[in-house]
Nucleic acid binder design. Structure first.
Lengths: 336, 336
DNA sequence: TTGTAGGCGTTATCAT
DNA sequence: ATGATAACGCCTACAA
């Protein structure tokens, strides 16, 4: 079942069939309907490999998602799908492990799918530095600032992570907390983690509160387990704190468990604040206070910027999307 | 950068280059090393489309995952990756939306990737009935019983969902509970949901406990939100219960929240039991009692059965993997 | 062991 | 508007 068969069946030449199938111009209405109908009847399906082998362009927009279990990205993909569905572009989503090289993969996919543009959900700047040069279509990294990379076809849309970290700590301080511990990602690996961390440091400094990263900060992976472990380590070290900021909700969940096992109640004994704004935070007991990234806004701006690049050859931009703090049950005001 | 260039560069013919690249026999060691090295230097990457276009077989094993956000499948994919990594097969994982037709997608991927076998993570029997006929390679559905479908190349590996549902209720009854509500998936759509439900009914019947599905059962989607809503509905209906079985952990999480908002404590006022054994259950407060599916065992048997089919042409099988109940903090014994 | 040539199913280019 | 035909990059007989 190839387009040759379709051609034979309809009496047209393969060229005409191909054009009809791809909505190209210069096909009579008569031919188009005849061919489309025949394709339907014989339930013809095009051979993607042959198509992509010959094709120089496609109308595909690619989304490269780093970290399969990442709930935040899950939501974002949904938003993006929704937005792209309203255009004439086709969306291809590619999921990969947390620790894979997303840029190398994208290079590969470019050869394969010939996309018009790429949306990266998550990423590591080093990977871009190393492998991005060979990509020459408009791209947008989401949740990662790429302004320092200065590739002219690489935009970025991020939450202002430094400011978010700062505001989180500010809020805890405003509530009367002075002894605040922080757990977050490894700031040597992840820029996002580093920025959030720097924001925290800034807030502490502004209030003259001493903060020693080696004692008060645990840098680990973004997972329940690592949040749990990091908090355990903090507790075991004998550090005292009335509040804990976990720079990812998944860590906060692990942290709450660790606190509980040490006999601390949340928020009575320790206030816990997360970050990201995952849906589950709303369902936990206690509900999680969190610095929420605006998933839908980020998705929307990313798509807009990408489209502007694809359709108008617009210059790259680096934008910041406002976050929002949801104060819920897991933090309390400290009474004097 | 094609194999032609490689051929030119090394002085060999494209045929030899192709064979060297694919570890085919009849290539001198000298030629092989020369070619491989040249490929390395020019960082040659093969054109997947051209390769797959011409290829009749590949050494690919395909995993079709239904439901991106499904933590259970996330774990399972990891296990599978680990198992396949020890073989000479290549793994391709394809993720899709909860409500997509996984079999139609698989048919498409067969044409594209020419895999040796397929592992379905999740699935709907109706889709198989409708579209599976055209697939003729060994396949295994995981978490879904396919024995009633009687395709001779379709195996299945499942938890005994009916028995799991029964045991869950039995345990609650053994702990002294008589008024037990159940929330689960829509049993008209999902076989898994139906089986779990039937198990519950069986347990109730065995103990002469009245159970009216229309009053005591809420059938909704597998999500926090739907677990929450279903529980709210149950509470609003005025039904009294001392225990609640949610036939998915995500639902249980939503349920606990709903209970809490109605002033009920878990487990003091209502015991809650989930099912699946998601990692997060361990970190919740209270820790979630759950009927855990043995992810690693399921992954292992699935891969073994698939391999047996691929390598030895073994007949299909339909196996059941033991589940295990983790009794944790969210249930309590009812004192008389 | 190595080289040669034909063809996989499609798109794209050029005629017509 | 349609048809014929040359690529696309690779694999695979088959010949050498």
């Amino acid at each position: 079942m190839t387009i040759k068969d379709l051609a034979a069946k309809t009496g047209y030449a393969v060229g005409t069939v191909s054009r009809a199938l791809n909505n190209h111009p210069n096909v009579s209405e008569k031919a188009r309907t005849a061919i489309l109908q025949a394709a339907q009847e014989m339930d013809f399906e095009i051979n993607v490999n042959a198509k992509q082998l010959k094709q120089t362009h496609s109308n595909t927009v690619l989304v490269v998602v780093k970290g399969i279990g990442n709930e935040l990205f899950g939501e974002m993909v949904e938003s993006i799908q929704h937005l792209i569905a309203q255009t004439h572009y086709q969306l291809v989503v590619d999921y990969m492990d947390e620790d894979a090289n997303e840029v190398a993969r994208a290079v590969q996919l470019c050869r394969e799918k010939k996309p018009l543009g790429i949306l990266f959900l998550g990423g590591i700047n080093d990977h871009f530095r190393r492998d991005f040069a060979s990509i020459d279509i408009p791209c947008v990294v989401v949740t990662n600032d790429a302004s320092t990379l200065s590739f002219e076809n690489l935009s970025s849309v991020t939450t202002d992570d430094r400011e978010a970290g700062r505001c989180a700590i500010e809020m805890l301080i405003a509530l009367g907390h002075q002894k605040i511990a922080v757990i977050g990602g490894d700031r040597d690996v992840s820029d996002t983690s580093r920025l959030r961390f720097e924001g925290c440091v800034k807030a502490f400094a502004a209030h003259g509160i001493p903060f020693d990263p080696r004692r008060d900060y645990q840098g680990v992976r973004f997972s329940y387990q690592d949040g749990y472990r990091a908090t355990k380590a903090l507790l075991d070290s004998g550090r005292e704190f009335t509040a804990l900021f976990a720079s990812a909700d998944v860590m906060a969940i692990g942290a709450i468990r660790a606190l509980r096992e040490s006999g601390k109640r949340v928020p009575e004994d320790v206030s816990v604040m997360g970050m990201d704004g995952l849906p589950i935070g709303d369902y936990l007991v206690p509900q999680l206070t969190t610095v929420a990234q605006s998933v839908s806004s980020m998705a929307q701006r990313s798509v807009e910027i990408l489209m502007d690049g694809i359709e108008n050859g617009a210059q790259c931009r680096h934008e910041t999307i406002p976050f929002r703090i949801y104060r819920r049950e897991s933090v309390r005001e400290l009474q004097e």
